[in-house]
Design a protein around this nucleic acid. Structure first.
Lengths: 134, 134
DNA sequence: GTTTATGCAAATTCTTTGCAATACT
DNA sequence: AGTATTGCAAAGAATTTGCATAAAC
């Protein structure tokens, strides 16, 4: 199944690139100039993930976020990356953090690490109070 | 709203305790002797989370898993814990790992860490091949 | 012209909620 | 008795799928 270039694909990728953060399908939709159907957005995003252009993060809210990771750059996406995603509990923003992570897995566990999500408050929202993590 | 003791609650907690792993509502349901309604299971589990008896983990499949964490023990649940959850991509099992994690957050980020999920292959399923992380 | 991509609507899956009946204390 | 809990059904929310039409190559 050979991929075809379409304006939907181009624009969605552009939105992700210029945002630099992980976005839900809804956030992407509102950033697009033309109206693109939800189903199409999902299909395009999943293609991007298959192709390694974008990666998918499941937030602690159970929703899918998609990111063109600045750290991974343009190069083929390494699926088993070792960096963190940070989701702000205040503004909901999901970012890719550069921090390298050394992960202490018990022996016997094969596990390249992925989809590592940390929640808290980002630089902008950072308020000490109300740290009601669930 | 004062909590009441019921057999549903007792049995659900018992199932979680004896399993030692994080379970979905469905896994719990099949382990119960009596039939308990989905809605009830969810309500009970969410109560447990509020009370800090159990914690909720959102898997990379977007589903909720609930665990009576052996590491946290009987004591009041510390919401911002620092240990990992490991989900096996083969058998789907979710475990709490003891590993202490030192997390490199950029300065300016307030973030106690929680819901840290790592995916891979557990000791039992551990097969090198087919590491198709998405 | 053939095959992929899109939009629309409908189906799925997971989770939550309203409400009347039931069970705790 | 009074209030929390349960079951059932229905509602919600996020994501996927079927199918006919439109667009790429």
């Amino acid at each position: 199944m050979k991929r075809r270039t379409t304006s939907s694909k181009t624009e969605i990728l552009e939105v992700l690139k210029s945002s630099g953060n992980a976005m839900s399908h809804e956030m992407i939709q509102t950033e697009l100039h033309r109206k693109v159907d939800r189903a199409t957005i999902y299909r395009v995003l999943n293609q991007f993930c298959e192709d390694g252009k974008v990666h998918k993060i499941v937030g602690d809210d159970g929703k899918q976020y998609f990111a063109f990771c600045m750290n991974c750059g343009e190069k083929k996406h390494v699926h088993s990356h070792k960096h963190l995603h940070f989701r702000c509990l205040e503004c909901g923003k999901v970012e890719c953090l550069e921090s390298e992570l050394s992960l202490p897995l018990p022996s016997g566990y094969i596990g390249k690490v992925h989809n590592l999500l940390v929640s808290g408050y980002c630089r902008e929202c950072g308020s000490e109070e109300g740290n009601n993590f669930s």
